[in-house]
């Protein structure tokens, strides 16, 4: 058997006895604190409605919750729309630039500086 067995029981017993030694001033302050806490409990309970009021409060809470979710869905839709618009615009800009480059390359390849046709005069027009 452990020599420390039973220490906790004796300590607890003495601690229980020590509660009787709490002075009156402290006990009065504790009572004051307890009364304040109970007032807090009562005032909180007044805020919790019952009967018809409870039904109304529940309905308000439901609507508030629904509104919150609706706003969330609208926000997500707005985000998706903005994203798609942005993507389309950038795609148009990118493809536009690519088309312009392609055209420029194409023209450059056809307009050769030493092409004799460029210096050729139309017979009818020159006449």
């Amino acid at each position: 058997m452990n020599k420390d067995d039973g220490v906790e029981k004796k300590v607890v017993e003495l601690l229980d006895q020590s509660l009787k030694g709490v002075n009156k001033r402290t006990a009065a302050r504790l009572q004051y604190i307890r009364n304040n806490a109970l007032e807090n409990f009562e005032s909180r309970n007044k805020m919790i409605p019952d009967g018809k009021a409870a039904h109304t409060f529940a309905a308000i809470a439901w609507h508030k919750n629904a509104t919150k979710w609706l706003l969330l869905v609208l926000f997500v839709l707005l985000l998706a729309w903005t994203s798609s618009v942005w993507q389309i615009r950038h795609h148009a800009e990118d493809t536009g630039a690519a088309d312009a480059n392609f055209l420029a390359d194409d023209l450059d390849s056809h307009a050769h500086p030493d092409d004799p046709l460029e210096h050729w005069h139309h017979p009818v027009r020159s006449r």
Binding site: R29, R34, N36
Partner: peptide, 13 residues
Amino acid sequence: LDIVQEAMMKLTG
């Protein structure tokens, strides 16, 4: 005492 008060107020609140 402050700690006890804080705990009691939190519990009842």
